[in-house]
Write a protein that binds this DNA or RNA. Sequence first.
DNA 1: AATAGATTTATACTTATTCTAAATTGAAAT
DNA 2: ATTTCAATTTAGAATAAGTATAAATCTATT
Lengths: 131, 131
Amino acid sequence: MKTINLTTQRQAVYDVVRQSEDHPTAAEVMNRLVERGHSFAYGTVYNSLRYLADKELIRELKLGETASRYDARTDDHQHIVCEVCGRVDEVMTPVPEEWMTRVAEETEYEVHEAHVVLEGVCAECRSKRKR
Amino acid sequence: MKTINLTTQRQAVYDVVRQSEDHPTAAEVMNRLVERGHSFAYGTVYNSLRYLADKELIRELKLGETASRYDARTDDHQHIVCEVCGRVDEVMTPVPEEWMTRVAEETEYEVHEAHVVLEGVCAECRSKRKR
DNA sequence: AATAGATTTATACTTATTCTAAATTGAAAT
DNA sequence: ATTTCAATTTAGAATAAGTATAAATCTATT
Ligand SMILES: [Mn+2]
Ligand SMILES: [Mn+2]
Ligand SMILES: [Zn+2]
Ligand SMILES: [Zn+2]
């Protein structure tokens, strides 16, 4: 049931995701694997990412870009994307329970989760802009 | 600058989106155009949707599915997707300003907007399930 | 060692969308 | 009315991300 089989490939993919701070795409994971001397088939990287996400060791993020990103943080959190440089940062402030409750009332849905993608300008791009 | 040129094709695409309650995908828009007796090139439908979204007559939604959906409502609102039947409903209860402010403090971003996709089970699927 | 299930690999395929270059349209100027 | 020119549409090719397939390889158990 709960048994997790970490093959060489899966372990290497997992390591890359865990050691990345920037929510890499599958293509970025692949590049980093090559940098580390691995050469796995593309399909294997996709399979591994899917496997790790299924086992909840990582999360797949759909941020509205063309490619999914992957995140080794599996605790509840959201994301913010810089409109200027594209960086993706963590949002740890939780979505208010009370808002979710109100949405459940409004929509008559049983609400399971909320995926939030915020957009704005990061501190770095803001300071660059002022000048 | 602000001039909007609604060709026959763009007008027809706009009409379909406005008269749809269900946030159709580009392929669904195309089917509905054919039902109405139109036969536009695929590229034209995509171009029209992009044009209308640029002019802010409609909105493009990225809900984490493979295909974008389109929405004739351009006022501020969010969406909820049923995990069982896939239907997409409106969420009009606004995201709390206060939460956005806290996120701005936490991340040091200048926050411009929030895109929220909630997931859960709709009333209809819930009642079907209970039996 | 033999078997069998799981996994990896290379490659083909799919889906959504964008790009391209030629043809068409339509408004403005003659 | 005819010419002109930019904007638009069209058909089809191209791209990007991801999935499916089938053969080869690995691994645990007899
Ligand atoms: Mn994250
Ligand atoms: Mn909507
Ligand atoms: Zn930035
Ligand atoms: Zn439902």
